[in-house]
Design a protein around this nucleic acid. Structure first.
Lengths: 272, 272
DNA sequence: CACGTATGTATCGTACAGCGATACGAGCGC
DNA sequence: GCGCTCGTATCGCTGTACGATACATACGTG
């Protein structure tokens, strides 16, 4: 079967979504399901309770479609009414995320190792998944002082300017790195964010040599993060282990010297 | 057309799902969306990569429906292929949960207060939402030593045997408490779990008097948890603040004396 | 090595679920 | 009062999504 060279004869229709063209594998695709998910995703753009009309506009579906999807999601707990009558994401979403974390063998394996790392380092420890232009925090073990966003799994930050992202890039070949960097928007998150292509490349090369990456104040002022990549059985980087500290307690050099071996060790234990 | 077979043509129809009867509000309900969500929920029952057939069986949809839903969810990132070819929840679910946490005003308000509480107590601090028979962990701030599940938001535990649940019950009137206790399965989680109705009532009454609840080793051996309820503007309990410690470091009495005021104070700050 | 039984994948004709436009009523500001 | 926007409800048509079924593949197993 599967004369795969040509997927030509069948499937692969193109659908438009906003101004993007999205290649859709087959006609098993359920449009109403997609519309409902677009409705949920509207809150990713605007994290506040929204009216039906706002949702319809943001999700780029008709008001009717939004209405039907919202009713359905509401009755299943994936949307909730906010006190003022608007709509907001429902707590059922937490259950699904929980399922994700529980079902994922890598994360299951990672948790005890990260807990150990947290204990040994005394600093914040994170575990993030590589997802093209962004890395996605999956496990977060805080230290004492933290800010709101530092506690939330599900947060994404750009690959190009995070230590985790660059630790991962260091394990890709040049063309793949180039591809990612080119497609990244490279908007600075702090005044110290490195956005220059050559400078990023320099950091990636350094990470290749050292076996880990670090970033000082590139995504949060006053914060230093050091990361090592986790490699799968095909030698591809899939995730990263982070240790994050405060520059009010550490110099960059001391931090690197102290924690690089720990991060590398933890990442290695998770690889393969 | 429109053959008059069976299905009543009017609103508020009843649909069967397994052996449960689910009242569906209107005919704005999108069945295909529901089916897709049932597919995702299958992983809540069995947190491991599953085959399409397993999913179909667990979600109680036909294989065809499961196939279509899976394809759709796959292409949108809400399902992923596991290394062995099976299906597992996709990382996009984390994004949605993140949206939930970010969009929810209560949680936004709670985070800094909990961080402060974590700092002052030095113990693990959790924030859970009341959801009928269960409470749902939304924020978790670990202490040093932790186990896997203690780190995961999205976890649910029974209302009846958790300190948070009983702190919440203490703010409901008797009939509501009774209703919840009766509908709860009351399966013990540890040998120390209190399952006897009268004893639970005793704990609830104690919580009413003290303004907080506690549970020693009822959901995890060696763990003591103390909680205070958060009240909304209609005087209904909606959430709870927990402080959790180890019995290897504290006696029950010392723990209560030391942390009850902190938990109560934090919960009060979040109320209204 | 044919066999049975899993699996995932693909096809197909038809029914009916879901479509979008539109109408309706409530609430707000002017 | 008017004019706007909100959420909600209605309706007839149509094309989406339905379930059964067929097909390819990968297993063990006797």
């Amino acid at each position: 079967m599967m004369n795969d060279t040509a997927s030509d004869m069948r499937a692969g229709s193109l659908r438009t979504r906003g101004d993007q063209l999205v290649e859709v594998d087959d006609r098993l695709f359920l449009q109403s399901v997609a519309r409902a998910l677009y409705v949920l995703e509207a809150f990713g753009r605007d994290a506040k309770p929204m009216s039906l009309s706002e949702i319809a506009a943001s999700a780029q579906v008709t008001k009717s479609a939004a209405q039907r999807a919202a009713q359905t999601l509401l009755s299943l707990g994936y949307l909730e009414r906010s006190p003022d009558g608007g709509l907001m994401p429902g707590r059922r979403l937490l259950d699904r995320a929980f399922d994700y974390l529980r079902s994922n063998p890598l994360i299951e394996r990672a948790t005890p190792i990260l807990i150990e790392l947290r204990k040994n380092s005394g600093e914040r420890v994170d575990f993030s998944l590589f997802d093209d232009l962004t890395i996605l925090y999956a496990i977060r073990l805080q230290s004492k002082r933290e800010t709101f966003f530092a506690t939330l799994a599900g947060r994404r930050i750009p690959t190009f300017c995070s230590s985790g992202g660059r630790a991962i890039l260091a394990h890709l070949d040049d063309s793949a790195v180039d591809d990612i960097l080119r497609r990244s928007e490279r908007r600075p998150l702090t005044p110290k964010t490195i956005v220059d292509l050559d400078q990023i490349w320099e950091k990636v090369r350094e990470a290749r040599q050292e076996g880990y990456a670090y970033a000082a104040e590139e995504s949060l002022v006053g914060e230093i993060v050091l990361s090592a990549a986790v490699i799968n059985d095909k030698q591809q980087p899939v995730a990263a282990v982070h240790i994050a500290g405060s520059l009010s307690e550490w110099t960059v050099e001391d931090f690197r010297k102290r924690f690089a071996p720990l991060a590398i060790e933890a990442a290695r234990a998770l690889s393969y």
